[in-house]
């Protein structure tokens, strides 16, 4: 009896730690997308004219986007963390069928981010086109790899 109880307890603990690990990865990847959205929001607000252009703030936002784009994605997207396997994610299972394509789409975000980083402080009119490239990188990946809500 004791053995069964112990074994069950150990298994439960293991399952708990696997779950906790999964949550950290999920929170990590959602967090990075939130950081992206917040900073793209600053640049977008300036491009739309909804907020006054500020070269320093634009540069800081662009730098932050570059920072996020440097995060290695494989760490945050382990096998089995797709929308069919777990709750609270829209990551489509096909990510893991085409992981190198998924990573190259993330790399395209990096290219767009570095372009934004170069032009963000040069003036309000430079933001729109650079934002277009950034948005294109978001779309290209979401088009294929993110499930609808």
């Amino acid at each position: 009896m004791k053995t069964i109880v112990t074994a069950t307890a150990v298994l439960a603990m293991l399952a708990g730690s696997v779950l906790a690990e999964e949550n950290r990865q999920l929170e990590g990847r959602k967090g990075q997308f939130n950081i992206l959205a917040l900073n793209v929001g600053i640049l977008g607000g300036m491009a739309k004219g909804a907020m006054p252009y500020d070269a320093e703030a634009a540069q800081a936002a662009a730098d932050s986007i570059v920072g996020v784009s440097m995060v290695h994605q494989a760490t945050l997207f382990p096998e089995g963390s797709d929308s069919m396997s777990i709750d609270d994610t829209r990551a489509q299972p096909n990510i893991w069928d085409n992981f190198s394509d998924f990573e190259s789409k993330w790399a395209a975000l990096g290219d767009a981010a570095r372009n934004m980083q170069t032009v963000a402080a040069t003036g309000q009119e430079a933001i729109g086109p650079a934002l277009g490239q950034l948005g294109g990188a978001c779309k290209a990946c979401h088009d294929t790899y993110r499930a609808p809500e």
Partner: peptide, 26 residues
């Protein structure tokens, strides 16, 4: 203005981005 901007850039007012088949529509 938000709708027009979304159709131009694919960004929602929260700067989430368009996905799925709508990405091609945008």
């Amino acid at each position: 203005a938000d709708v027009a901007y979304y159709l131009e850039t694919g960004f929602t007012p929260d700067f989430d981005s368009v996905g799925g088949h709508m990405a091609e529509v945008v």
